[in-house]
Amino acid sequence: MSQNNLQQNIQTEEVSHEATLYAEPIAHIGGLTVTNALFTGWVAVFVLIIISIAVRAKIKQIPKGFQNLFEIIIEGAESIINQVTNDKKITAKVFPIALSIFLFVLINNWLGIMPLGGFGIIENTEHGKAFIPLIRSGTADLNMTLAMGVLSVIGANIFGIMSIGTWKMFNKYVNIKAFVDMIRKVRKEPTLLISAPIMFFVGVLELIGEFAKVASLSFRLFGNVFAGEVLLLSMSTILAYVLPLPFIGLEILVGVIQAFIFSILTVVYYTIAAQDHDHDEEHESKEHKVATAH
């Protein structure tokens, strides 16, 4: 009798599905908690590996179909990146990273809005039974966007070191050079007494700015994609299947735009990191001297 009651309770108990700020765990592998966003990340990696192998296998001197599409993407991406960098050498180096970021973020964004959300597991939680989808946009998890943001900013700084050198890159953040110049040239230029501490402070601001970049990149992407997921869930709660359709179209567009913004901002950070401000200043002062001499 009690067993029948329990079964009835199980059958009548509602399964809740809420949009959570965090990715829900679906499995544990050793010490690693596999969340649905991490799983989506793996699916995205798998999809991109398949695409890459497919491209490699069908590569021909005279392009056809899939290769044509990929070549159009490559040419378009290169053209856009070149508009940002204005330097073909930087473009050649940044292009693979930017395109990889774009495709990885895009696939992660789109996987979340595909009708795969219906597949999942039901778990008992404190508030009763909850449906946990197997697929959640990878970018709707701050862990993923943080990882991408950190990689982007660290990558930009490494690129800066490779382009202008460690010392110059270090002085961007801890401007010791400004104080050395102040001591050396203070008699000729007393204004350095004011400008050097300001320059040092600007360096500190730059350092803080690097953390801000990580925060801005990761929260922007996470916020947009998570908001999209919440929106779709809300719409499907109001009127399932019909009402979310236009919003799915919108989210497809948002997915592209967000992936584009993330990759373009990365290109901008790489370009800024590769620029030597001292060299520019020296160049400007030389031009000024030449102009005054004439």
Binding site: L38, A44, N143, L146, A147
Partner: peptide
């Protein structure tokens, strides 16, 4: 946000 450095590293490896 359930920040987990292991997941962050896993996602970085993914990328």
């Amino acid at each position: 946000f359930h920040i987990d450095w292991k997941i962050i590293i896993a996602q970085a490896i993914n990328f």
